[in-house]
């Protein structure tokens, strides 16, 4: 009886020690900063910043490898929030990565679409519906407006259309102040 108890206690102690040691040795220092930055980014996963998605860009910002002004979909508002979070001065959007545009969605001209599926493969959020040799269409609600589907289209049947403001899409706007270098 006592041997059994001793063995189980010994086993538990040993495994506890190993796990405790492992917890210190393999501690993952995932900075909460990355998550905060990622929360500000617009999650379009468009890659216009030069990184494969919003999370990698957030990681790069946190590591100091990327500047905060490389996200066109986030616009001035996004830069201001990032600057506030990181305690740096806001700066105008880097023109290399594109200009901020009004929120728009991709629209496929269904008369021209040949059903090649190339835009489906390009879409990072699976917002394009369709199958080979059949017409495709964009699910407007899912489209983030990243424009990645436009270059692969062989018949140029995809265009960006600005989302008109109506009762369903209207959002109250934050007060915006133009950024000036001090």
């Amino acid at each position: 009886m006592s041997t059994a108890l001793l063995i189980m206690i010994g086993l538990a102690l040993f495994l506890g020690l190993v796990l405790g040691y492992a917890a210190i040795k393999f501690k993952v220092t995932e900075s909460p900063l990355v998550q905060k930055i990622d929360a500000i980014l617009p999650q379009t996963q468009c890659g216009q910043c030069g990184f494969p998605g919003c999370k990698p860009y957030a990681t790069a910002i946190a590591a100091g490898e990327a500047d905060i002004n490389q996200c066109p979909p986030g616009g001035e508002e996004g830069i201001r929030k990032l600057a506030e979070l990181l305690g740096v001065d806001p700066k105008p959007l880097n023109a290399e990565h594109g200009a901020p545009k009004p929120k728009s969605v991709a629209v496929i001209d269904e008369n021209l679409c040949i059903g090649c599926t190339l835009c489906i493969q390009a879409c990072p959020v699976d917002a394009i519906l369709g199958t080979a040799k059949h017409m495709h269409t964009v699910i407007a609600k899912e489209c983030t407006g990243c424009e990645l589907c436009i270059p692969p289209c062989p018949v140029d049947c995809i265009s960006m259309q600005v989302v008109q403001e109506d009762l369903a899409t209207w959002k109250s706007k934050y007060p915006l102040y133009a950024i000036r270098s001090a």
Partner: peptide, 19 residues
């Protein structure tokens, strides 16, 4: 004892892989 050992291995594996 097998349950304890296996649970510990899973935990250890998870920590190791995460890092």
């Amino acid at each position: 004892s097998f349950i304890v050992v296996i649970a510990a291995i899973v935990q250890f594996t998870e920590m190791y892989l995460h890092k």
